[in-house]
Design a protein around this nucleic acid. Structure first.
Lengths: 204, 204
DNA sequence: GTTTAAAACTACCTATATTAGTTTGTCAAC
DNA sequence: GTTGACAAACTAATATAGGTAGTTTTAAAC
């Protein structure tokens, strides 16, 4: 089977996977708005309309890039968590989450796009993330509902922090590392302390 | 010398404020991508190029809409928190935050755009949010650094949860209310425990 | 070789943002 | 009142981008 190199042959040998990967690279390098059909085609050595043989349109392509981003994020988190558990695992996951978003800010931003309902690859990647965080929380011995809540809470905390950080929502960048660690620690402390309700300020 | 920049225009009563407000309405009704110069102009009873007398371009307009969204969000949070403090205030703020995002999902999404550095109105609205959350945390008696961390953590938690919820990041909608309340409660418990009440879960 | 399906092409259309240059209405000074 | 200044709005036109239609080319199967 002849396998052509990229861009030289009259037949470029593109397929959907290659197009989506190139789109992800383009997003990573030039931002989400830098992803245009024309530029992507140029980078792939092809005319713009040719891409429509592989993708349904720009919107669908962006969704595909989002799915790819979630898959890569899930991979990062899993690699970070392997061989760890409990607090150590949670911190490792949280740091990996933030590191991914900082290294690939535009790809991460692309990730936020709502997926098509019923997208198997998205569901699968999202499920992996839930699973790895859930596993890290194992030592906390939470019931299944509490565990779901905790996974959602942690994911929200990480995503929210990182997202606000990328948008410049926090002022001074120097203290942000500390704030992130502290936020995760506070949440974990809350998990560990659950049961004894705080009641702070309840007298009003 | 004629001074008609403040609210009274010679011809059709259009000024920057009106344009931005109409843009926000359009975003609210038809989504961020539904905001085009042409449609906005049509809605204002004017031709598209006329808008350039009031705004610098679409990007700048979107940033202005973002600022307006943050201002309205800040207003909602302040109204929710008035007369409350401590845990009760935090829950009220968190619920108001989520309610705003659910009632105005596209305006909320527009809010995430990074503002121009040095935008006074944005800084002012962002400062109001920090202030109202910080005031709610008063009974927790945190030091100034811990307080900043806590404000950032809570804001991250709320934003992250709401953002993921809007993106369909969570599966079953029935349990989401509970998860949100639980996430906020867990974080508050973490604040209370770390603040010196019991010290449970703190590793050092 | 012939056939076939996909991949890529050219040509074209539409929508949108934006600019250039012109006209028009309102206000204030004369 | 007349007039002049100036912002507001207009018409016309340009550039870019997404997307479609229909045609050609190529790799590979028969």
């Amino acid at each position: 089977m002849p396998v052509w190199g990229c861009g030289v042959s009259p037949r470029a040998g593109l397929d959907r996977e290659a197009v989506v990967e190139a789109a992800a690279s383009l997003v990573d390098e030039e931002g989400l708005d830098g992803l245009t059909v024309g530029r992507l085609a140029e980078r792939l050595g092809v005319r713009a309309p040719s891409l429509y043989n592989h993708i349904a349109g720009l919107e669908e392509l962006k969704r595909a890039v989002a799915v790819l981003g979630v898959e890569r994020l899930a991979g990062s988190l899993m690699r970070a968590a392997v061989g760890k558990s409990g607090e150590q695992a949670v911190f490792a996951i949280a740091d990996a989450y933030r590191a991914f978003a900082r290294e690939h800010p535009d790809l991460y931003a692309a990730t936020l796009r709502a997926p098509e309902p019923g997208d198997g690859r998205y569901s699968s990647a999202a499920g992996e993330i839930l699973e790895v965080v859930g596993a890290a929380l194992e030592p906390y011995r939470l019931g299944s509902e509490d565990r779901l809540d905790a996974v959602r809470g942690l994911r929200s905390l990480c995503h929210g922090f990182v997202s606000l950080e990328l948008c410049g929502g926090f002022g001074m960048p120097r203290e942000v590392d500390r704030s992130f660690e502290q936020a995760v620690r506070t949440y974990l402390t809350g998990l560990a302390c659950a049961g004894g309700e705080s009641g702070v300020g309840k007298s009003d």
